[in-house]
Design a binder for these strands. Structure first.
Lengths: 219, 219
DNA sequence: AGCGTGAACCTGTCAGACAGCCGGACAGCA
DNA sequence: TGCTGTCCGGCTGTCTGACAGGTTCACGCT
């Protein structure tokens, strides 16, 4: 392994802390001076490390206020173009349905309990913005539980794109309770380790969401 | 537009010069001191801008020597984890099969003729490395012809990953002629605009390739 | 020709300084 | 009470100057 410069070392630490979720989105990092003292380096070094994080879209730094985490992974917008609504509704079933099947077979106990928590939290959630965030986590976690990095990455991508689409929020209000029920069915199948049922439940869920989206787009 | 800090401004200039090709891969940037004088800022500002470029994988900086351009666009490796062989064989059918179906319905005349050329070139190709490159183009072009950016991006990623896997080349020798025939069948279905047949042909092709890959991995 | 050596240049890091921005505390005013 | 203006402390943005250590190359010696 190549010897790292101090700046690279600090950058790696910060990046790891952000991507691992130890520093959640919205969290405020310590001040540059504090970090410098903490890691035993000068402020220049810390600043260069923070710049690297910012270049990757992980953080934003606001003059006079501090540095804040805005993403826990490198945004693909850096590399890839935006997806259209049609792209998403068309592609999602082909990816999320098999991912749900695999998740039923491969999910860990830990993932299962996280899924349960998410579904429970969504039932009692009124704020659409928060609900959308939970929904995103639900689908992303299923993809991760599929133990297939292709699915995991694509779903993360798709959820990112959805979160940036204004239509998403409009749709949520109507579909929220119906989706809660569909999510519960998906969860039940994954809990039971029943891949076929998980695929069917996910398929129906996406189909229902797709129809809801279509009716908004054509209105 | 938000007012840019000096460091951001310098970073944008450098990034643009690199991505536009004005500074080609392998080119050496001016020294930090020179750049500082050139843009009328301090060396700290230049260093932070260079760090940003490095974080995006555009440049590398070598102590005592200088900073060099190593890529003219942000590398996908930054964003994507490595895929395992299992990840790929498992995920590909779910993505490339529907993509082939859409391609049959949506391909342009231009794409069609490019696909024909690729298939023709593969038939007469002996060099496995070149053949793999053509194969990659074939699949990537079909994904593009699907007119769905999700599929297009995922397939591009998958082909990238395959190209970096050593198993790929080993497999090619045995499968080359069989694959040529399968490619011709896929092409014929896309030419005919027959989505169902295109999906079947692609499915059979990937299945055959998957089996070939498995036999290598388990050897 | 071969070799060693030092000067020149470059990056890596540090310390200190100052301006400008921001949020909150606080006092004064209606 | 409730609003407002002011001030202070903390933070980022930038600059300057300095020194250590890596790299290159030409000069001069053998």
């Amino acid at each position: 392994m190549a010897r790292l410069s101090a700046a690279e070392a600090v950058f790696n630490v910060l990046r790891t802390e952000i991507e691992s979720g130890k520093l959640g989105v919205g969290a405020k990092l310590s001040s540059e001076a504090t970090l410098a003292q903490q890691y035993g380096v000068s402020r220049s070094v810390v600043r260069e490390a923070l710049r690297s994080c910012t270049a990757l879209g992980l953080t934003v730094t606001k003059t006079g206020r501090g540095t804040f985490v805005v993403a826990n992974r490198v945004a693909k917008d850096l590399v890839l173009g935006q997806y259209s609504a049609r792209d998403l509704t068309e592609a999602r079933p082909h990816i999320e349905v098999p991912a749900a099947g695999l998740a039923a077979e491969r999910r860990s106990a830990e993932e299962l309990s996280m899924l349960r928590e998410i579904v429970a939290a969504m039932s009692g959630e009124d704020d659409p913005e928060v609900w959308v965030g939970l929904d995103s986590s639900f689908h992303a976690l299923i993809a991760r539980a599929s133990r297939n990095k292709v699915f995991e990455n694509v779903v993360a991508d798709i959820r990112d794109a959805l979160a940036h689409q204004s239509e998403t929020l409009n749709m949520v209000a109507d579909r929220q309770h119906a989706s809660d029920e569909e999510h519960r069915r998906i969860l039940a199948a994954i809990e039971a380790g029943d891949a076929a049922t998980a695929r069917i439940a996910m398929s129906q869920h996406l189909h229902a969401v797709g129809i809801a989206l279509d009716s908004i787009l054509n209105a």
